[in-house]
Design a binder for these strands. Structure first.
Lengths: 257, 257
DNA sequence: CAGTGTGAACCGTTTCACAGCC
DNA sequence: GGCTGTGAAACGGTTCACACTG
């Protein structure tokens, strides 16, 4: 799927395919787990299984980074962790602001995976004056009025939007104007941003709709013709249902600009 | 990303490309907005802009559904809303269970986009006995012990996992054993499921890492050689940064099985 | 004649299969 | 001998450009 945008002709050597970039975090997580168990080396086969992709894809992916493996042996776990971290830019610290501290914003603020890999929640911002000062995940919420100064004072370049849909574009505009160049958008809206700004979106309702599509198809298949599900699909009857085998990667899109 | 699995050879006429399926919810959302404003028809150009894709892609997508437009005129909004809803299986009601009612689970339970489009939160499940009975988003949380009976009694085929990573696989196994065939996974783990079960994942930390990668590249480019960001990227300097133009779709992956 | 519908070209990604190296 | 690294083939998706139609 990877509709991923091709930032820059990609013709150059530093051109790692977007689909590969999207899988690097997956490899990194699997490698980190191995590292914690003090496993010294892995084969492409093992690592691929742990990351949920197939080994050919993994080897091809790594080949874009360079030749970090040893033929006949496999990959050195620690070394790979470092190389991938570096490639992803996780060896530096990325201050992030979260705008919109509702249920979701709070969930994000509390999310551990944040701090673990180079990201640091620099500030929580909300439009509700009543929230100001209240600590969420140990960080005091600040009012939207402070947005610009927070961005600038902390050198923030990554922003997370967790506001209601109606406020998203406006927040986005302010973030961009203040210097943010990468945005993770949880609001169900299409954001428009100037060139040079990356937007990635996470949309729960879309994911569910895609699942529903496949679910519907499964139901339709088992009962040969129509008769679409009225009740649930019996857990049993799934002889040759839809899904496929093997784990597969995923490549969310970087929206336009 | 769309590594999307090809459920079924896709050779058949009913074979709508995975990438197209992933965009249908986007079109649906845009169309719904138009519908609310009582706009009777749209051209592919207008609708594409509202959905954040280009018109050629949109027309090609619609061509897989059939010929629902009128040459020289455009598409009938209401009619299209219905056709896409039907195609996505949203004309029926999908009961969904959410397992893991922490910050994220609560956010999901409160998420409005849920109910709006064919989905109904049938139950909230959590392993903490202390949570049992407590209402979240107006729905009383039930204990994990009830999981199997809830699934069966409500004919649930779609489950959402919002538990910590450590519990995810176990919850997943129980959901699948009880009859769930589609899972939306928010836990940062690779789930393994039997054939016939679809898994889609949403992973915050992965999205951020992908953004960091591009962000890093932007910083590296402006300062010709190295000198990677120490402070933020000046909002100004972004002549020919990374991002591209035009809005683009996205196609998260359906994980393996 | 404006705008849909679509064959055909193009392009990025995945998969295959094997040469090369430890 | 085992496993990596990689050309080349296969594939799915996107873009182009235009024929066709209301």
């Amino acid at each position: 799927m990877a509709t991923g945008r091709t930032h820059r002709p990609a013709t150059r050597s530093r051109g790692i395919p977007e689909a590969t970039v999207a899988r690097l975090p997956l490899y990194l997580r699997a490698l980190t787990a191995l590292s914690e168990r003090s496993v010294p080396t892995v084969s492409s086969e093992e690592l691929a299984a742990a990351a949920g992709v197939n080994s050919a894809k993994l080897r091809k992916d790594f080949s874009y980074l360079g030749s970090y493996g040893t033929r006949g042996v496999g990959y050195d776990v620690e070394y790979l962790v470092y190389q991938i971290s570096r490639e992803l830019g996780l060896t530096q610290d990325w201050p992030v602001v979260i705008v919109g501290i509702g249920n979701l914003g709070a969930a994000l603020a509390n999310y551990g995976g944040f701090a673990s890999r180079g990201f640091r929640v620099a500030a929580l911002i909300d439009a509700d004056p009543g929230m100001a000062g209240k600590p969420v995940a140990g960080i005091p919420v600040q009012h939207t009025d402070e947005l610009e100064s927070i961005i600038r004072d902390n050198g923030v370049s990554i922003g997370v939007i967790a506001t209601p849909a109606g406020a998203a574009q406006q927040v986005c505009d302010r973030l961009v104007a203040a210097g943010v160049t990468s945005i993770l958008n949880f609001a169900p809206t299409v954001l428009s941003v100037p060139d040079g700004v990356d937007v990635r979106k996470v949309d729960l309702s879309i994911e569910l709709q895609i699942l529903a599509f496949h679910e519907q198809r499964k139901a339709g298949e088992e009962a040969t013709t129509g008769v679409a599900a009225e009740t649930a699909v019996p857990a049993a009857a799934r002889e040759e249902s839809g899904t496929d085998q093997g784990p597969d990667g995923d490549v969310p899109a970087v929206m336009p600009a």
